[in-house]
Nucleic acid binder design. Structure first.
Lengths: 153, 153
DNA sequence: ACGGGGTGCGTGATACGTCAACATCCCCGT
DNA sequence: ACGGGGATGTTGACGTATCACGCACCCCGT
């Protein structure tokens, strides 16, 4: 047996559990809103957002996986489903014949452009509006710090 | 067409996207640690933690769903899997014959007691250690505020 | 040129989450 | 007492996430 660990203080526990619960709540709210209003899941939205942000509305699958920080196979499965719904298409890559591009279809672009204003609204309604500018800045810094310290390895 | 929405500022976007990414990273790290070290998923851990905190190591299914804020059917499915692995058992409820208790088995109790110190360690290593006490307090307050404002409806 | 190791991506099995539908049972008004 | 509405919990179908694996292909040393 090792020595007793230093258990979490009440505040530490509030921060940890609160983070988890806040996230779940927000994802649930925002996700339902997107789904019901536009037939897009949160994942769909993120994928389309990254793609439309890229030049030519296209990205290599692996690059997309990188910016999303998704496992390649998760992305692959998801793209298959999105392609089935006509939101994106795969294209062969001339440079590297193993590779593949994902391209937003007109329908995909239309979908995210329709959904974007509502998404921003949701983020404000469910999240930002309840916080002071100072809290928002703090949270951004907290997130950046934690991410930076966990990204690698 | 409605007027353009007020798009997110850079900081607001950092806070929102950062929150999502920070959460995913932490859940991934902590989840793997639990899974690899003790064969428990994060969900298993939470369920066992709530149950062992309750008197008699047992709770009504619905009460458990309440404290976890899980859908009843999610919980039901999860309990079925946990029962299959011998971590919990269901028991009939004498008072209300519709109802059911979930009870931690000795194996379940052993599992979470073995895992708990490591869990605390993980929360510190991946999360708390990178933040100042002030940031931790701030985050706890932020989470509480957001949760409180979204809990209902 | 060729052969082996690494890379880019897809697939199938399995675990998990959500929804809708259902069976059972409690409670309360009449 | 009985009958309907609400509550408790389970189930099946389906979408999604992860893992292990496989295939095609590139690159580089020989």
């Amino acid at each position: 047996m090792s020595a007793d660990p230093r258990w979490l203080t009440a505040t530490e526990e509030r921060a940890w559990r609160g983070l988890l619960r806040m996230h779940d709540l927000l994802v649930d709210r925002a996700g339902r809103s997107m789904q019901e209003g536009f037939g897009l899941s949160a994942a769909d939205y993120t994928v389309l957002a990254e793609l439309t942000r890229a030049p030519g509305d296209r990205l290599r699958v692996q690059e997309l996986a990188g910016v999303l920080d998704w496992e390649k196979s998760r992305l692959s499965h998801h793209l298959t489903r999105m392609a089935k719904r006509g939101l994106v298409v795969r294209e062969e890559c001339a440079d590297d014949r193993r590779g593949a591009f994902v391209v937003v279809t007109p329908a995909g672009r239309e979908a995210i452009e329709a959904a974007a204003p509502r998404h921003v609204e949701d983020v404000r309604r469910y999240f930002l509006n309840h916080l002071t500018p100072g809290q928002i800045t703090l949270l951004a810094e907290i997130a950046d710090t934690v991410i930076e310290n966990n990204k690698h390895r």
